[in-house]
Design a protein around this nucleic acid. Structure first.
Lengths: 359, 359
DNA sequence: TTGAAAGCGATACCAC
DNA sequence: GTGGTATCGCTTTCAA
């Protein structure tokens, strides 16, 4: 900030008015106090509408307007107030559905006059907690998390310090301020039923979190449903992105014993399967049926359009932001706000009956 | 923060050691000073390796490690230090290419130990400066901007206060710390040449910023190139997203006098055109040739694969972050770092010769 | 309801 | 090189 200082010194030698537009001297609360003839404390209260007479409040607001006063978020934060910044911690920004979620959450936060400090675990569950802590250190007012890692003790500690709202999976053992839960179990079951109903028996599930959280709903559900439906179902861990899944998919499908259907626990992964199929000259759904998870806006534009389980980002974002706002406003631990979202399977042309194969 | 206080009071009655893991009392610089027998000032300097003897520095670092000291970013910011937070201001998070850019920038920043405060102008140029100012108020160390609005005086003022790096278009009249410039002019020219070479004469350019910044390179280039190539070329403003462009595209194409080719200044817009074509039963490129801008990873997966002008997000992100890091480290105005990225046209199946029409 | 003053946790200036 | 200390701008007891 040396640069800043130098400019100030220069400016002090000239007419103060010429400062305007050069370096904008932020109006401080003290100046507002002086201007209104009140004390800084009174002004502070007035601005927040706390324990003030209506008359004073109006007077202060007018003065603030006139002088272009805006509270300094940093000073406010240091003094124990709110930062108006929310941490948004996602499992993988490389995933398109997640990107859409970020947009949606961002949008909701803007409406609530909040900013988003975005952190990306980049598919590495181990990085998740570290990033969360970093966000806490930045004094965010709250945390929106799309968990990919297992619930660890660290989360409980963090949830005790500030409001945490999860989207998607839960953080078992943690009592967050809110959770928007996707019923992944049911989602997987529905998808497998759909494939099973089409006649598929050999199915591979491509999942992005299998090694690190063996109890994650989706995988357990896959195993259970598969057993119930009498399917030969294998769950394979997979990178959480188009580019990451393509090579894996290519390897998986370049094999006469390949599955007749692939259920991808993210549309991004499904896109990788599309790419692999193009590479291998396999047709969808003729050679392989493909289903996704999340239903990204682009999925319906692919050829063939991708069958996918809808997880509405707008709804999730709105709900999560609302939960978080409430929790921040409550300023203390409350009962966990909870919303369970039901999966809706959007059946499109990427899933059809399996073609009989020789061998 | 009442919750915090209450817990503290409770805890004070019990053994302080039991505090660990319940509420972590941040170690302050003063405690570190006390512990090491130094003054807060000395510790502050030592931690930043400024004007300290090696011995002291080591001693302080060890103590910091031991007590788990981490500087409070808020306090640091208020005192004029760095926040390690960078503002990332994008024109529209609804645009998929932009989403990818956010991912890439985010990733680069993580490598540089920086966090990203993401702001989305949501396609509204007017919102851009307001958001930028908000980021400045949050004391970000620097700003990465993907400009959509016209360069206004406000930008010059901001650029004087902190390092600003632009990606994509420039901010004329502003001397930013760095700029990663896409040669949109050439990009548009190449695309139009390609379409012209295929035999198209009636072309519509769908652009996302036409009303607000009439001097934007891309549009001017479109007009110039079109004139040079003898094209009947119309530039139409369009929402910066799939969902936004679809209705417009539908309207545009549901007309016998429709263009034979559409050049979209963003792949997201092109996706909307695809959707509109599907809706109207038009074939690509048979009925309409479509070209995009940006080359999103999904574009090659569409049917037909989308012809697009490649703007590499990884490169842009790396370059921008590098510029910004340098500028932040320099801590003062330097010459503008500049990188001009050349467009590469990826020709795919979405563009072909026009089909002769009756009428 | 309002005012005075003590922080919040760093940084940076000025002596020594 | 190190130590005191004012400062950043706001919040929040505590008194009046």
């Amino acid at each position: 900030m040396n640069r800043f200082t130098i400019i100030c010194i220069t400016a002090c030698r000239v007419n103060p008015d010429s400062l305007r537009g050069i370096v904008k001297h932020r109006t401080t609360i003290r100046e507002l106090a002086e201007y209104t003839g009140l004390s800084p404390a009174a002004v502070s209260y007035a601005l927040r509408g706390k324990q003030v007479s209506a008359a004073t409040e109006r007077r202060v607001r007018e003065a603030a307007e006139k002088l272009g006063y805006e509270a300094d978020p940093i000073a406010r934060a240091l003094a124990g107030g709110a930062t108006a910044v929310v941490g948004l911690l996602v499992g993988s920004l490389a995933d398109f559905w997640t990107q859409e979620l970020v947009r949606a959450v961002q949008r909701e936060l803007y409406g609530a006059e909040l900013s988003a400090l975005v952190a990306d675990a980049d598919g590495e569950p181990a990085r998740e907690l570290e990033l969360a802590q970093r966000l806490v250190d930045q004094r965010v007012d709250g945390l929106v998390v799309v968990p990919i890692g297992p619930a660890s003790g660290g989360w409980a500690s963090i949830a005790r310090q500030l409001p945490v709202v999860t989207i998607g999976d839960e953080l078992p053992g943690v009592a967050p301020a809110g959770e928007v839960v996707f019923d992944n179990e049911l989602g997987v079951e529905q998808a497998l039923q759909h494939l099973s109903g089409l006649g598929h028996r050999r199915i591979t599930v491509l999942s992005w979190a299998v090694e690190t959280s063996p109890e994650r709903d989706a995988e357990r559900a896959a195993a259970l449903s598969a057993a119930a439906l009498g399917l030969d179902c294998r769950v394979v861990p997979c990178a959480y992105s188009l580019n990451g899944s393509q090579p894996l998919a290519a390897e998986l499908l370049d094999d006469p014993g390949r599955p007749t259907a692939v259920l991808c626990l993210s549309d991004s992964i499904a896109y990788g399967v599309y790419a692999a199929c193009a590479e291998l000259g396999l047709s969808i759904p003729g050679d392989v049926a493909v289903a996704g998870f999340g239903d990204h806006p682009i999925s319906r534009l692919l050829a063939p359009p991708l069958t996918s389980t809808v997880w509405d980002v707008e709804q999730a974002a709105e709900c999560a932001t609302s939960f978080l706002s409430q929790a921040i406003a409550a300023d203390g631990p409350q009962a966990t706000l909870r919303e369970v979202v039901a999966p809706v399977l959007a059946v499109r042309a990427s899933t059809g009956p399996p073609t009989p194969r020789r061998g």
